[in-house]
Design a protein around this nucleic acid. Structure first.
Length: 551
RNA sequence: UGGGGCGUGGCCAAGUGGUUAAGGCAUCGGGUUUUGAUCCCGACACUCGGAGGUUCGAAUCCUCCCGCCCCAGCCA
């Protein structure tokens, strides 16, 4: 689908109107992650939306860290997020922004609010504040500290800032309406005391602004015109606007919400992803089973696949669950187009070619539809490996049902000869140990001779010219479509068989050069890339080939 | 329950009162193929959460009802 025939979404309509009416002259958006974890596929959608909007309307998109809570944040997360956004192929406008760069301004604005009698220092503790807040159906009650004088609040806020007040004992609150039907408007907390070092400001601050008191102002400072966030922030919008209206901010951004991405058999919650890491259910944030950007990267998923998938998603106000198959489609689509082909035998079965005593080198194209990807050389010798699943002694198997090697019959070795299986050699346990076979002369690059009908085409690798390697096969991390719903914890639904490590695989020699960033299709198996964290030759299966045949 | 938001095929959705309700994924047929891949062709909503109403005409407007999501952190 091209941009021109793709329907425009409701945010694009709003922006078009704003541009047409002159309300907006240059579109500015922003991607504002909190550095409290690694980015995941859900963030990718948000990134594509925000950077995409800036691109289609020739505006700007900022990268801003919403680092207002030092308790959960770290520089490691900052660095990983920067890397992931870059890797996805987006470039932000100007320098990277940090909410923490605006802390002085926020403090000034807090003082302004106090002076306007629109904020006060409250000494209710968390539990009391909850009681005073009321409920969904009952109005809240005013805090006894609500009528405190501006001078007193100013002095107290100063002490909070100076570190003279214990955590949890005081907050700065907006004076709005304790009876508001919107609970977010019931005198929300603006500043809380956290006597903890911040990864950027160190121990300069003992108080930190709450999300609501920071986000809109960050947008205003940066001249963000359209502040796009997810649906769960809709109830915060009136508060967002309240600060914009009551503060002397340099611009008037508008918040719009869209539905976040949910994927079945997966989880898109930083908190829960962190739990998977912390509790050791996965190896790390970049475990190839993780739906994190870094996990997908290590798995072999390309930025293009992620972006195409995100482009295929609707930007709307519905909150649905996208089928993982839709993501799979875009992963395969990109890999099929761009991954060079190679052969790797996962479960080797030795085949000795009794009528062949040469060594040849065949040239095979790297891609059946793309000559520009060049070719590679395939060594062929009198002993080869084929996959155990590609051989059967059962001669009653129909040609339609089993398009592989059967005892006494023919099969095409991809890019090489047609061979016939002649004899099965067993070990003392009765297991098949080796196949004796014979090649059909002059069948390389040529049609099968009269009377010989190979059942199909199978992949293979030369014994003396193969590489020993390990292959990691992955299954979905969860065994339920909605691991989050229902009784119990999402960790109860972790698929115990999500990783299968296969050692002793045999890869074609050209794969010595494999690097982590370069994908391959192992023919008839799937798409693989070299694991970035392993010294030895280890391949991660990005995704299998589509498998349409029914046995 | 107060407030906010949302309900169109298995999934994601377009649709902004007027031809046979786009498209993608999935699924099911068939063709091509030295990958059971790719590619190509075809099938797949008398009906838009439900019931009324307005209208010559309704998925689109009105009324009522039903269902789902979000908000009661000194998280974001």
């Amino acid at each position: 689908m091209t941009d021109s025939d793709k329907p425009i979404n409701f945010i694009q309509q709003i922006i078009s109107n704003d541009l047409a009416s002159g309300k907006t002259s240059k579109v500015v958006t922003r991607f504002p992650p909190e550095p409290n974890g690694y980015l995941h596929i859900g963030h990718a959608k948000s990134i594509c939306v925000n950077f995409g909007l800036a691109e289609t309307f020739t505006g700007h998109c900022n990268l801003r860290f919403d680092d207002t809570n030092p308790e959960k944040e770290s520089d490691e997360y900052v660095q990983s997020i920067i890397e992931d956004v870059k890797w996805l192929g987006f470039s932000w406008n100007g320098d990277i922004r940090y909410a923490s760069d605006y802390f002085d301004q926020f403090y000034q604005w807090a003082c302004d609010l106090i002076d306007q009698d629109k904020a006060y220092v409250c000494e209710l503790n968390a539990e009391q504040m909850r009681e005073y807040r009321g409920s969904l159906t009952e109005a809240g009650q005013d805090s006894p500290y609500r009528t405190r004088s501006a001078d007193e609040s100013r002095a107290l806020l100063e002490q909070m800032k100076a570190g003279d007040i214990a955590e949890g004992t005081m907050t700065l609150r907006a004076k709005i309406d304790m009876a508001s039907p919107n609970i977010n408007m019931r005198d929300p907390v603006l500043y809380r005391i956290k006597r903890i070092a911040h990864h950027r400001t160190g121990d300069k601050w003992n108080i930190y602004p709450a999300y609501d008191f920071a986000h809109g102002q960050e947008d205003a400072i940066e001249g963000v015109t359209h502040s796009i966030c997810t649906l769960e922030f809709a109830a915060n919008r009136p508060l967002y606007n309240w600060f914009i209206e009551n503060l002397d901010v340099p611009s008037k951004p508008q918040q719009y919400e869209f539905g976040r991405l949910n994927l079945n058999y997966s989880i898109t919650s930083k908190r829960k992803l962190k739990q998977l890491v912390d509790e050791g259910h996965v190896d790390a944030w970049d475990d190839p089973r993780m739906p994190t950007i870094s996990g997908l990267r290590r798995r072999g998923v390309s930025p293009t696949a992620i972006r195409n998938f995100c482009e295929s998603l609707a930007v709307a106000k519905t909150d649905g669950v996208v089928d993982m198959a839709q993501f799979d489609y875009f992963i395969r689509d990109d890999l099929n187009n761009n991954a060079p082909r190679a052969m790797c035998v996962l479960k080797p079965l030795l085949v000795t070619l009794s009528n062949y005593d040469k060594s040849e080198v065949f040239t095979a194209s790297a891609h059946p539809q793309r000559d520009d990807l060049g070719s590679r050389e395939l060594a062929f010798d009198d002993q080869i490996y084929i996959d155990q699943s590609d051989f059967s002694e059962d001669t009653s198997l129909s040609r339609k049902k089993f398009k592989r090697l059967v005892l006494g019959e023919y099969v095409r070795l991809r890019g090489a000869y047609i061979i016939r299986a002649d004899e099965v050699i067993r070990n003392s346990d009765g297991e098949i140990q080796e196949i004796k076979a014979s090649v059909v002369e002059n069948t390389v690059g040529a049609d099968a001779p009269e009377g010989i009908r190979p059942r199909g085409v199978i992949h293979w690798v030369s014994v003396p010219n193969s590489l020993d390697c390990t292959v990691n096969l992955y299954d979905r991390l969860f065994d339920q479509p909605l691991p989050d719903s229902g009784e119990g914890s999402f960790t109860d639904h972790i698929n115990p068989d999500s990783l299968k490590v296969i050692k002793g695989c045999k890869a074609e020699a050209s794969l010595v050069d494999a690097v982590a960033s370069k994908p391959y299709q192992f023919e008839r198996e799937g798409y693989f890339c070299r694991d970035s964290q392993s010294e030895s030759l280890v391949f991660n299966c990005t995704i299998g080939l589509r498998d349409n045949w029914k046995a």
